[in-house]
């Protein structure tokens, strides 16, 4: 307990929030680089995953590549890339993007695949083009699972970015590396707590988003359809607004 108390005291120490590269600076750096990696991973994996889910093709290849990417030892890969490209943001970004693609890809194709085939068949029979089916039917209905993939991706990246500090990168991992090097376990634990807290906060925010994006009609369907009160209730204002928008 002493150690934990020490770690929290260390985090709350004003000295660690004001001078030079302080906690807030490392926090921002950690967040910015994580965000960049997640963004790149989403830009790559989301269209591919949606394409796989929509067409039903390439699923086997995606799983194979995902499994290989997951099996790559992050630290080893990072070391090799740093030897090749030198110390800098590039190798770190590459490694984290490779790590971040599998969960995003899985979320994207699982999400689109989860949409009822009959609903898609009906949309097509009504005369929607394939793009309209993707944009107006599959993505809105897959959104909760897409955000789920994003959550897993963000969590993975934020947690793993810590090791990058071993290679002259700032970020919150610096406290782990310094703590280890100086046998300063209070600092080490403080760093671990900070990374964990950041991961939890981001995950919590995305969880809230995930709940918000469940389409209204789908959310109603999940609750008891025989609940007479629910049936008799007037549509919520949000539903009416949506009706006017689309």
């Amino acid at each position: 307990m002493n150690l934990f108390g020490g770690a929290f005291a260390w985090i709350l120490d004003p000295a660690h929030w004001s001078a030079g590269p302080d906690i807030s600076g490392h926090l921002l750096e950690h967040l910015a680089v994580s965000g960049l990696c997640v963004l790149i991973a989403v830009a790559i994996a989301l269209p591919i995953g949606i394409g796989i889910g929509h067409s039903g093709r390439g699923r086997g290849a995606a799983i194979l590549i995902s499994n290989i990417a997951r099996a790559l030892p992050t630290l080893g890969l990072l070391s090799i890339l740093i030897l090749l490209f030198g110390i800098g943001l590039l190798p770190i970004t590459v490694v984290l993007v490779i790590l971040a693609i599998p969960p995003m890809l899985a979320g994207a194709y699982a999400g689109v695949e989860s949409v009822d085939r009959q609903t898609i068949d009906a949309a097509r029979a009504l005369g929607m083009t394939e793009w309209q089916i993707v944009l107006r039917v599959e993505i809105p209905l897959a959104l909760p699972l897409l955000i789920g993939g994003l959550r897993a991706t963000a969590l993975q990246v934020i947690a793993t970015l810590g090791i990058a500090s071993a290679f002259a990168f700032g970020g919150l991992g610096i406290y782990l590396i310094n703590g280890l090097a100086q046998a300063d376990f209070v600092q080490l634990l403080a760093g671990a707590i900070l990374i964990t807290a950041l991961a939890l906060v981001v995950d919590g925010l995305l969880a809230a988003v995930q709940r918000l994006v469940v389409p209204h009609g789908v959310a109603l369907g999940r609750s008891n359809p025989n609940d007479p009160q629910k049936r008799a209730r007037a549509p919520r204002p949000r539903a009416v607004q949506e009706g006017m928008q689309s």
Binding site: T119, A122, L126, G127, P235, A239, S246
Partner: peptide
């Protein structure tokens, strides 16, 4: 796509879009 937009289609399990209201579903085409 053009052909389908000119032909009405009613399917077994209604095939309604669950995220759209009744009026929006009817107005789809």
């Amino acid at each position: 796509v053009r052909l389908r937009r000119g032909i009405g289609y009613v399917m077994q399990n209604s095939g309604l879009l669950p995220h759209r209201t009744v009026a929006e579903n009817i107005a789809t085409v």
